[in-house]
Amino acid sequence: MSGPGFFDIPSDLQNSYLGLVGLHVEEALIPVAIGLAVALPLGQLCVRFSWLYPPVLWITTVLYAIPSLAFFIFLIDYTGATRTTVMIPLTVYSLVLLVPAFVDGVRSVPQETLSAAKAMGFGPVQRYLKVQLPIAVPAIIAGLRVAVASSISLVSIGALIGNQGALGNLLQDAILYHRSNLALNSVLTTAVLAVLLDIALVLLRMALTPWMPRSGRAARRAARDAAVEPAGRAALEDASV
């Protein structure tokens, strides 16, 4: 067999296969981490001041509807054709997914449970850390699963604004050099990455919430929540007001 092998990366990308994988994971996960770090306090605010939630939900719905490609392009003017430009929209999407996940998760804690915790002498901080947060974990993880999967998929689109797409850059080169193997490589690697990270998150949930059923209804619910995020949430919320 002549010609470049499956894992041979064209030199213009100035990176090895594993280098691209690392870059892809980095570009996908840093935004999710920042998104989570902002979503927890913001979500807590929405729980504390419930009037804040509907407007926040609508803003997040609108932000989530902005296509990634358009978002990248609007940012080029400010941050240039850099990795930052790719990561800012992904951070926003993650934030937008995680706030409703957190709020719904915390709200799903029954009032009696909180009253019981209060009656047992838990202070507000302890209630948050020992009761609300653990019970909200499944919802937060469900949100994280969607955020990570969409982040992994969207990094590739960064390739369109000047080779900022990590594994997505392979797609550009596939077209440029007419090497379909590169496209297949990109798709498979990205999909495997997404699946592995998804499994990692499911394992994390099982480790954090040993009291939860391992499959069945809870998993389906999480999957549905994920599917209607966040636009659907807003629709349901809208219906209730």
Partner: peptide, 23 residues
């Protein structure tokens, strides 16, 4: 078939749209 659907959805979500298009 609810669990099967959840599985299909998770798998479909893992497919990158842009990559799939080029492929």
């Amino acid at each position: 078939g609810g669990n099967a659907l959840a599985l299909i959805a998770t798998a479909a979500r893992a497919l990158p749209s842009y990559g799939l298009l080029v492929l």
